[in-house]
Structures are given as structure tokens and as C-alpha cells.
Design a protein around this nucleic acid. Structure first.
Length: 105
DNA sequence: AACGTGACGGCTT
DNA sequence: AAAGCCGCCACGT
């Protein structure tokens, strides 16, 4: 069965909510773990519509290049980076050290 | 219904 | 290392 859009959204948010503190996952990784391979953009699309103050740890989702998917220096970029550094995720310049901080369940 | 946009990603230049 | 191409598809216009 093809998952309905709302099922897909639930699956994606569930996966993101399980990313442990101090670890990160890529959009594509989240999509795959949610049973939606190849649909990384859907993950970004859903996160872009999260309400303010959501309990979902949206900031633990980064792109496959190990970078924050906001323009460097934008308020969103700085917010996300601060969250990550606040829980011990190290960056080398604008790039997260995926080798060390990627979530591998 | 058509079209542009975008918190993506893998592959090729 | 960087930029282009293309597949992916929800959404607003």
C-alpha cells in the first residue's frame, strides 16, 4: 500500500523524534528510515511547516553533505547551529563531523 | 490543470 | 572541490 501523505508525515516525525541528543541524521536518512526511500525533500518540506516551539528536534536533521540547509549566517542557520553545539555536536567550519556524530541505530 | 519553488541527494562534468 | 542535471513530490498561485 502506498502510504497516505499524513501517514508519511507521522512516520517522518516519529523517526526524527528518536534521534538521540548529540547526534544528527540527514534528510535522506530520515526518509529511508521512515520507509520512504528517495524522498528527502519531503522531510524538508514537512520540517519547514513545523509550528514554533514544536517538541520535534528538527535541528538534528542536516543534509547529506554534513551541512545545515540554511544559508550561512541566516537566523535559522544560527539557531540550528547553536542547538547542535549546545548538545556537543562539533562542526569544522560549516560542516558537521558526520563521521563522529551521525546517528547509526 | 499547469507551473514554479524548495529545510534533498546521487551521479556526472 | 564545485557546479550542473535530474529524480523526487508537496504546496501555493
Amino acid at each position: 500500500m502506498e502510504p497516505s501523505p499524513s501517514d508519511a508525515k507521522k512516520a517522518i516525525l516519529l523517526v526524527i523524534s528518536q534521534i538521540p541528543r548529540g547526534r544528527v541524521a540527514s534528510y535522506g536518512q530520515v526518509a529511508q528510515m521512515a520507509g520512504l526511500p528517495g524522498r528527502a525533500r519531503l522531510v524538508g518540506s514537512i520540517l519547514s511547516q513545523l509550528p514554533e516551539g514544536s517538541a520535534i528536534p528538527w535541528y538534528r536533521v542536516i543534509n547529506a553533505a554534513g551541512r545545515i540547509s540554511f544559508p550561512e549566517g541566516s537566523p535559522s542557520y544560527q539557531r540550528q547551529r547553536a542547538h547542535l553545539q549546545g548538545e556537543g555536536v562539533e562542526l569544522k567550519g560549516p560542516r558537521i563531523k558526520l563521521q563522529r556524530f551521525r546517528w547509526n541505530p
